[in-house]
Simulated scan of single mutants.
Amino acid sequence: MAKRKIALAGIGKIAIDQHIPTLAQSSDWELAAAVSRHHKVEGVPNFTDFAQMLDAHPDIDVVSLCMPPVPRFDYAKAALEAGRHVMLEKPPGATLSEVFALENMAAARGLTLYTSWHSRSARFVPAAKAWLQGKRIDSFAVTWKEDVRKWHPGQDWVFEPGGMGIFDPGINALSIVTEILPDPIHLRSATLDFPANRDTPIAARLDFVHPHGAKVSAEMDWDHQGDDVWDIVAVTDAGTLALRNGGAVMEIDGVPKGDEAGLAGEYPALYAHMADLVAQGRSDVDLAPMLHVSDALTLGKRNTVSDFDW
Rank of each mutant, 00 (worst) to 15 (best):
S139C: 05
P184K: 01
E219G: 11
S121P: 00
A94V: 08
E219M: 00
V278I: 14
G262F: 06
A106L: 11
V233I: 10
D147M: 05
Q155F: 06
D168F: 15
A51V: 15
R84P: 15
E146V: 11
W29S: 03
I180L: 14
F308T: 09
A107C: 01
D207T: 10
D295S: 14
S116H: 00
H273N: 01
L263G: 04
L54D: 05
K135E: 08
A101P: 00
N245K: 08
I252P: 05
G93W: 07
E260I: 15
A261T: 04
A79L: 03
W310G: 11
K145A: 05
S36T: 02
P21Y: 08
P21L: 04
P256V: 05
D59Q: 13
I185M: 08
G134H: 14
I232F: 11
S64A: 15
V249F: 04
V177K: 03
Y114F: 15
L31W: 07
G213W: 13
G239I: 01
H212R: 15
A204E: 07
T112R: 06
V255W: 01
P182S: 10
L96E: 02
T298I: 00
W230Y: 13
A128R: 01
E42K: 13
M274P: 03
N46M: 09
V35G: 01
I20E: 06
L65Q: 09
V229F: 12
N104F: 13
A269F: 06
D55E: 12
G10R: 09
L270G: 00
L287Q: 00
W157Q: 02
A78S: 15
S294F: 07
T112G: 09
A79G: 11
L181Q: 05
V44T: 08
K90M: 11
F100M: 05
D28H: 14
K257W: 06
I60Y: 05
G110V: 00
L277G: 10
P45F: 00
L287V: 09
A261Q: 14
L88W: 13
A51D: 09
W131T: 10
I171D: 00
D276H: 11
A106N: 07
V63M: 12
A279R: 15
F308S: 07
A204Y: 04
A127Q: 12
Y114G: 09
H186P: 02
E42P: 06
Y75Q: 10
K301P: 04
F47V: 08
D284K: 15
Q25D: 03
A234G: 06
G154Q: 06
P21F: 01
D168R: 12
R109M: 07
I252V: 14
G247S: 12
G162W: 04
H212M: 03
V125W: 03
A296S: 14
P71L: 06
A76P: 02
Q155D: 12
M53R: 12
R4W: 07
Q52P: 02
R4Y: 00
V142Y: 04
M1W: 02
K13H: 12
F100W: 03
D59M: 06
A94N: 07
A296R: 14
S217K: 11
K13Q: 15
R302A: 02
T178H: 01
G265F: 08
G162K: 01
D231E: 10
D199Y: 04
V216K: 02
L80N: 08
G213D: 12
A127L: 13
E103S: 05
M1I: 05
W144H: 09
T143I: 09
Y114A: 10
L132E: 04
M250A: 13
L102E: 10
G83V: 00
T22P: 11
G281I: 00
G43N: 02
